[in-house]
Design a protein around this nucleic acid. Structure first.
Length: 439
RNA sequence: GCCCUGGUGGUGUAGGGGCUAUCAUGCAGGCCUGUCGAGCCUGCGACUCGGGUUCAAAUCCCGGCCAGGGCGCCA
């Protein structure tokens, strides 16, 4: 099979074929999107990465053998066609290819598990079972082109701001960070866990002299949630910066968000058009609302919320109606934030923690961290955790730890806001949720 | 984990104690030289699984599994 291609190589993608190129010979390769056999003329719609090109085969104008081969083709088979570009007002896009030779590179089995032409829509569950075919739909691949560009842009931005990319372990030895449920795994003769967050590692890096670090990597949460905005494996864009506070952290986050959106809007217009999504570049600075004020806003809208509570789903929805784009919620009560969050100097009941929201969706949370060893130990105790199990982490605070701040952005939720998706599963190639572990 | 709703050809659906189980798309065959959601003709293909009620269950009841929506959980 390896010599099937021989010296045949693609010369153009569908998108590159223009009417001005008439009479040129080209080789296109891709999947058969649709076949329209009218008897004396066959139209083969050939789909590749970015578009669809019509191959037009009139029986009188091409070799009879080629005509018969084309007649036998099946949907979603992979072919290479060499042919001449013809300008035609009757063809989609004003161009078509008159075939000279055709190679069948891979024949598709039928029936298909999904309709790639989207005449009959399929449910997300069916689509995920056959994700590789689902992704052949340009309306699906567009989401991942945007996600790719967003991640690229985030890296570019952070590198330009003098950040160093780091990699921290995803196999961790203890569940002592507290809070979320962890996935236990077998690590030789011991028990270990999948990392829920690079939090403690990126803080330890603050004692290393790198100053600005970031990591883009998966995090794992063993919560049995079953919603449109939670998954058990997601990509976290994590940042930590030394000699800074929460205000600096919010500023850099805001800058990164705008930069990524601007970049996607500039480079992914085709994908955005395919999704029919009008991406708006948000204005800066993003509104900053204190927690106390938010509680008041929620209660004024008739949704009950006690001071000191975390946001309920109903509270998030109310805020989503009141605030149209991105906004920060700041000055969270220290009590409902993790042990490493710095209490405010003026009022220790308030913290230097913030959340970045997009309408009713939490995109990021961050904070200035405690860098004082003794205060940190005290906070660990007050949360009912054992400081002994944080030995290696705490040691980093004993030999010169600068003040620092950071945040983590959920890459998939961020992608949802850039693509208009309502289900987080749409933004992951092979999502892992409560029930799904394959493919 | 809780509440509500559901599971019917490959895909998406209608129906709802006894029907030849609806429609679209698809697939197979036929006709057709400008299709572009091609059209027309013929055919193919389905009641989630287990138990129960009943003369009779795809339909009613119970349970499992799975899905959709909502919530909780998510330092």
């Amino acid at each position: 099979m390896t010599d099937l291609l021989e010296d045949c190589r693609r010369t153009h993608y569908s998108k590159q074929i223009k009417p001005e190129m008439k009479d040129e010979d080209v080789v296109i390769m891709g999947w058969i999107h649709e076949m329209r056999d009218l008897g004396g003329i066959i139209f083969v719609l050939l789909r590749d990465r970015d578009g669809v090109t019509q191959v037009t085969a009139p029986s009188k104008k091409i070799e009879p053998e080629l005509f018969e081969e084309l007649k036998k083709l099946k949907k979603e088979s992979v072919i290479a066609v060499k042919g001449r570009i013809q300008e035609s007002a009757k063809a989609p896009g004003g161009v078509e290819i008159i075939p000279e030779t055709m190679k069948l590179l891979s024949e598709s089995k039928l029936p298909l598990p999904l309709d790639t032409t989207e005449k009959v829509r399929a449910e997300i569950d069916t689509r995920l079972d056959s994700r590789f075919i689902d992704l052949r739909k340009h309306s699906v691949s567009a989401i991942f082109k945007i996600k790719s560009r967003m991640l690229h842009s985030v890296r570019n931005f952070l590198e330009s701001e003098d950040y160093t990319e780091i990699n921290t372990p995803k196999l961790v030895g203890s569940a002592t960070e507290g809070g979320t449920e962890l996935f236990p795994i077998t690590y030789f003769e011991r028990e270990a866990f999948l990392g829920q967050s690079p939090q403690l590692y990126k803080q330890m890096m603050m004692a290393s002299g790198f100053d600005n670090v970031y990591e883009i990597a998966p995090i794992f949460r063993a919560e049995e949630h079953d919603t449109l905005r939670h998954l058990n494996e997601v990509i976290s864009i994590d940042v930590e910066t030394a000699f800074t506070d929460d205000i600096d952290a919010m500023n850099i986050l805001e800058k990164m968000v705008v930069k990524a959106i601007t970049d996607v809007k500039e480079h992914c217009q085709d994908a955005l058009n395919t999704l029919e999504f009008g991406l708006q570049i948000p204005e800066t600075p993003f509104p900053r609302i204190e927690y106390d004020e938010m509680v008041e806003m929620v209660n004024n809208k008739g949704v009950k919320m006690e001071h000191g509570e975390d946001m309920s789903r109903a509270a998030e929805k109310v805020m989503g109606e009141l605030m149209d784009g991105y906004y920060f919620i700041t000055a969270w009560p220290t009590d409902i934030k993790p042990f490493y969050v710095q209490p405010s100097a003026e009022d220790p009941a308030k913290s230097c923690a913030f959340d970045l929201m997009y309408k009713d969706l939490e995109i990021s949370s961050g904070a200035m961290r405690i860098h004082d060893h003794d205060l940190l130990v005290e906070k660990i105790k007050s949360k009912g955790l054992n400081p002994d199990s944080f030995n290696r982490y705490l040691a980093a605070f004993e030999y010169g730890m600068p003040p620092h701040a950071g945040w983590g952005v959920g890459a998939e939720r961020f992608t949802m806001t850039m693509t208009g998706q309502k289900n987080i599963r749409e933004t992951v190639l092979f999502p892992r949720d409560r029930r799904r572990l394959t493919p």
